[in-house]
Lab assay of single mutants.
Amino acid sequence: MEVRTIKVFTTVDNINLHTQVVDMSMTYGQQFGPTYLDGADVTKIKPHNSHEGKTFYVLPNDDTLRVEAFEYYHTTDPSFLGRYMSALNHTKKWKYPQVNGLTSIKWADNNCYLATALLTLQQIELKFNPPALQDAYYRARAGEAANFCALILAYCNKTVGELGDVRETMSYLFQHANLDSCKRVLNVVCKTCGQQQTTLKGVEAVMYMGTLSYEQFKKGVQIPCTCGKQATKYLVQQESPFVMMSAPPAQYELKHGTFTCASEYTGNYQCGHYKHITSKETLYCIDGALLTKSSEYKGPITDVFYKENSYTTTIK
Score class of each variant (00 low, 15 high):
L37S: 12
P300Q: 13
N187D: 07
L200G: 06
D109H: 08
T226L: 10
G101F: 02
T211G: 01
S310I: 13
G272N: 07
L186A: 05
T169C: 13
L290H: 15
T169F: 02
M245E: 03
D41E: 13
Y214K: 00
N49C: 15
I315W: 15
G267I: 04
D303S: 00
T169G: 00
K280W: 04
V21R: 13
L212A: 08
T76S: 11
G299I: 03
K229C: 12
N111V: 03
V22R: 04
D135T: 09
T27M: 08
T292R: 07
K316H: 15
F217S: 02
M209A: 15
V21H: 14
T278F: 07
A146D: 08
D23S: 12
F259A: 02
S50L: 15
M24Y: 09
T75F: 04
E71G: 06
V67Y: 09
Q222M: 11
N157P: 01
C227W: 01
V160T: 02
F56N: 03
L179G: 07
Y84V: 04
A117C: 11
S181N: 15
H18R: 11
R66S: 13
E144N: 12
Y306V: 01
T103V: 13
D135E: 14
G143M: 03
E68A: 06
Y137Q: 06
L212E: 00
T27E: 12
I277Y: 02
D287F: 04
T5A: 13
G33Y: 08
K293W: 07
P34I: 12
A205W: 07
C261V: 00
D109P: 00
A154F: 03
P78L: 12
V67H: 15
T313Q: 14
V160P: 12
G161R: 00
T314P: 10
I152P: 02
S104A: 10
A146T: 00
F305C: 00
G257W: 01
Y84A: 03
L283A: 03
L59T: 12
K201V: 11
Y73V: 04
S86W: 15
Y284R: 03
V58W: 03
C261M: 02
G220E: 03
N309V: 13
L254H: 03
L153C: 08
G82Q: 14
Y234L: 06
V188A: 00
N129Q: 00
R167S: 05
I15Y: 05
R66T: 10
S240G: 03
E68G: 05
H18G: 08
I105M: 01
T232A: 04
I15W: 11
I124T: 03
T10V: 13
A132L: 06
K95E: 07
G272V: 01
K255Q: 11
F174C: 06
Y96S: 07
Y84N: 01
P78G: 05
D62N: 14
S25Y: 05
I15K: 15
E71Y: 10
F56S: 04
F128N: 02
T314V: 11
L291H: 14
N309M: 08
S263D: 05
C112F: 05
V99S: 07
R139F: 03
N100E: 14
H48A: 13
A40N: 14
K275R: 15
A145W: 07
F128D: 00
I105Y: 06
F128I: 06
V236P: 03
E204P: 10
I277T: 01
Q230P: 12
Y155L: 05
K92R: 14
L17E: 10
T232C: 03
E296Y: 15
K298T: 13
T198S: 10
G53W: 13
E52H: 13
Y252G: 00
F128P: 08
M244V: 08
G29L: 08
S171K: 13
S104E: 00
V12P: 12
A140L: 13
G288H: 00
E264W: 02
C225E: 01
F305N: 01
V243T: 04
K298H: 11
I277K: 03
F259D: 04
Y269G: 09
N147V: 11
L283V: 12
Y306N: 00
V221E: 01
Y28Q: 09
K280G: 14
Y36K: 04
Y297I: 01
T55L: 06
Y72L: 09
A142T: 13
E168V: 06
Q195H: 10
E239Q: 12
H273L: 01
R66Y: 10
N100P: 01
Q251Y: 12
Q251F: 11
Q230G: 04
D180M: 10
G299R: 05
S50G: 13
T64I: 14
V166H: 13
Y84H: 08
E215Y: 02
V8C: 12
V243N: 01
H273E: 08
K298Q: 14
I6S: 08
R141Y: 09
K275I: 06
Q238S: 04
G53Q: 10
K218V: 04
Q230V: 14
G143L: 05
F32N: 13
S181L: 09
V189L: 08
T76W: 07
S246I: 02
S86V: 10
T11I: 15
L186R: 08
D303K: 00
A115L: 01
D38H: 11
F128R: 03
Y269E: 13
K54G: 11
D303E: 07
F32W: 11
S86T: 12
D165Y: 01
C182K: 00
H273W: 00
Y137N: 04
C285P: 07
Q98R: 14
E296V: 15
Q134R: 13
F32M: 13
K54W: 14
L121W: 08
Y284T: 05
P130V: 07
S310D: 12
L179S: 05
T5G: 12
Q31P: 00
G33T: 05
K93M: 14
F32A: 08
H176N: 05
C193M: 04
L200Y: 15
E71R: 04
I152K: 00
P248K: 11
L254V: 02
Y138Q: 15
Y57K: 05
R141P: 03
V236H: 05
I315M: 15
D303H: 00
Y36W: 12
M209W: 15
R139V: 06
S25M: 06
I315P: 15
D38N: 11
D165E: 10
Y96I: 05
T159W: 08
P78H: 09
Q175G: 11
S310V: 15
N111E: 05
L37Y: 14
T266V: 10
Y284V: 10
T75Y: 10
F9S: 13
L119C: 09
S213Y: 08
V185Q: 01
I301L: 00
D62A: 08
Y155I: 01
Q197T: 15
P131Y: 07
F242M: 02
V22M: 11
A142W: 10
F9A: 10
D63S: 10
Q270I: 10
M170P: 06
